[in-house]
């Protein structure tokens, strides 16, 4: 009897100390994320919060070292009423929509092609990816040269094809400036789309295609009845990522057109940059940022909703 209680007491003690040791170990685990966590709190979470805070103030270059006053939702009203804001929103939608459509379709075509086995495939796939790796400043400069009104290769090509009679000044014409930047951005996005779709295609089960072939389904039928449905998750993720990445594009616009002429190629991130660093109205810039963030969160929510719907089916 005595001995038994002794044992159970001992067991209790060891369990207690084990629990303590485990808790200590778990606490030790947090040390691994502590440095990075502090860094991200300081330089990621805090700036985002700060950005939100100044949307309710009147922070400009003039009063940056003094106190700012609280202005409520005035900045939001100013931005939403601004004609240039509405124009940039429209441009952002056109820019993102057209870029995604062409990047995706051309990228898909490339992916289907590079999914075949042929000599030199890996080398060429890697070479194509270079377009995506080049800094945007350089791509922007390069396309600025190709779209140049005088001696630009695109004018030469179009005149040789007989599409135009005389050179067009693509980047300083308000009908063509936005579309020129779109073409440059499509070029950058194709490799990314290709690689992601290729990875998806390579993970598809080969047996399904064999079975379809036995059943007499042609290539086109196979594509629409097997490839597309099976690729749906990849496609969905890619499109959402594409929207988010394309919506952010700034460098290309800055280099190629500077948002002009007369704001005809201004997109939202560029509009925010202009507000903050050309007009030095930081609060208005931050307000545009916050609106952009809201739109992106909306896209993410739609994505989550689509994924959930997919899983429930």
């Amino acid at each position: 009897m005595n001995i038994e209680t002794d044992i159970s007491l001992q067991r209790n003690i060891t369990m207690e100390s084990r629990k303590k040791a485990k808790r200590k170990k778990v606490l030790g685990n947090y040390l691994f994320i502590l440095p990075g966590g502090i860094f991200l709190l300081l330089f990621l979470v805090f700036p985002i919060g700060y950005n939100l805070k100044i949307t309710f103030e009147d922070l400009t270059a003039l009063n940056i070292l003094k106190d700012q006053s609280f202005v409520g939702l005035e900045n939001y009203a100013t931005v939403l009423k601004d004609k240039i804001f509405l124009l940039s929103l429209k441009n952002s939608v056109i820019f993102t929509g057209l870029c995604i459509f062409f990047q995706f379709t051309i990228g898909f075509a490339f992916a289907l092609f590079f999914n075949k086995k042929f000599p030199g495939r890996n080398v060429m796939r890697a070479l194509i990816l270079i377009a995506w790796m080049i800094p945007l400043v350089i791509t922007g400069t390069l396309f600025k040269w190709m779209f140049a009104g005088d001696h630009g290769i695109i004018n030469h090509l179009f005149m040789w094809l007989g599409l135009i009679d005389q050179p067009i000044h693509w980047l300083i014409n308000d009908h063509t400036s936005l579309y020129s930047t779109i073409i440059a951005n499509i070029w950058i996005g194709i490799p990314f789309n290709m690689i992601i779709l290729l990875a998806g295609l390579q993970s598809l089960p080969e047996e399904t295609y064999e079975a379809a072939k036995v059943d007499g389904a042609g290539k086109v039928r196979q594509f629409f009845s097997i490839t597309l449905p099976l690729m749906k998750p990849t496609i969905l993720t890619l499109l959402v990522l594409g929207i988010i990445y394309t919506f952010k594009v700034f460098d290309i616009i800055l280099i190629m057109t500077g948002g002009g002429p007369v704001n005809s190629s201004t997109v939202l991130p560029f509009y925010s940059y202009e507000m903050a660093f050309t007009n030095y109205n930081f609060s208005l810039g931050a307000t545009v940022n916050t609106i952009m963030l809201g739109l992106l969160i909306l896209v993410a929510l739609v994505y989550l909703w689509l994924v959930r719907k997919e899983e429930n089916v």
Binding site: Y50, L268, P269, A276, F282
Partner: peptide
Amino acid sequence: MLPNIMLALPFFI
């Protein structure tokens, strides 16, 4: 998914 400008602006200040 944050646009770079969303960080660049507070960073500047």
